[in-house]
Design a binder for these strands. Sequence first.
DNA 1: AATTGGGTCAACCGCCGAAAC
DNA 2: AGTTTCGGCGGTTGACCCAAT
Length: 433
Amino acid sequence: MGRPPCCDKIDVKKGPWTPEEDIILVSYIQRNGPGNWRSAPTNTGLQRCSKSCRLRWTNYLRPGIRRGNFTEQEEKMIIHLQALLGNRWAAIASYLPQRTDNDIKNYWNTHLKKKLEKPLGNSDQENHHHHERHVNLKPRCPSRSSEAAMARGKWERRLQTDIHMAKQALCEALSIDNKPIINIPDNLTPSQSTTAAYASSAENIARLLPNWMNGSKKLSQTSSESIGTMKTCSSLVKKQFQSPLSEDNESSLKFGSNCKVNPHDQKKNHCSNYSYSDVTRSVSAETSATMFQDESKPNMKDQMPPLSFLEKWLFDDATTQEDLMNMTLQEREDLCTSPSINPRATTSALPLHYTLPKKLPPLGQGEPPNEEYLQETIKEYGLNFTQDDARVWERLHGNGGPKRVFGIGSSDLDFVVTKTSSSSYGITPSFVN
DNA sequence: AATTGGGTCAACCGCCGAAAC
DNA sequence: AGTTTCGGCGGTTGACCCAAT
């Protein structure tokens, strides 16, 4: 005997998700956190398989997702990373925190692949050759020995790890200044960046939850404001969740007066069917991103820092790339831990690479905040710290123990729903074992 | 106005390793 | 230890849109 199945495979619904289904799923995730997909269909009454729920969340509903309008920088990064890593879209997506692997894959298949195959103009041609140089690194030639291929595989993995480590170090170092780190291209206004139907996930959630940020015209500026708006949202969600498969009267509550929405018309109407589009604009992706913790995407102070050495390397600068390529692993590690890049690195013997746990514990099972951890964190940030620090946690507990998830509020889904802090200290109990 | 063909992208499929029983 | 499912991933499909004819 093995595991019991998560859902009845016979009555599973397929095809596009309806807004009602989205609401049900979002509500469920607000209560239970992402990760427990197995129980999602049974607990919500959704006629979807767990896999479909997970996919819907990770590719579409998850906050912090930006859709469409790939910037030139993103495009270059994808091209370079694809050349370096191949079609490992999940790995590539980990360098573009706001993009899903599915989106990147689609964008590659529909835009970039063709673009690179086409004969190009002068400036593009350089990129093309540049790209080809990378592509040619790949072990395509069957005459190559398997040892060479293996060595290359190892080298790629090491390089990937190194890049990741360096990026995180840079993220950490640069985010200390509390600079705005969200990476919205200059040429896009907030509304432009979310013009597509179901454009940003913040928009999605707001669409599903009309009072999501009710009463906060501006972006939430203080934590109390955020809490207030979250309260509104939360109570609404609770209310909705009590009768998720409700009839028209409730769906009109959810979607406003024009709520007879055919999902396939959404693209046409560009959200005009929804009465809360203005409210939606007041929600930054960043704000909403902190309200959920995704289990598959490292939050790691999520966004990219300003153009870094590594980004330069990823984008254009062949010289820089060669420099990095020529570095030994040790040298690259030194770069990552250099105090000039990461002032905090000197105090830590721990690797900067921190992998987020894949699962969140069920509500109520998180451990209480650890005193030692709190003291260390307060020492590091003062009393007003608002984020957990995995590095501190790991320094105190090593790799064996339970791991703390980044981010107050972001990982504390219980808080989002119940509005009661999970701990008297105000930090989240989001541990995994 | 009708048809056609290419572009786009959400969602499904199948595989694999890990986890649960 | 063996079986079954889950979760994650990459490849693919098919419905929809839109411009060209």
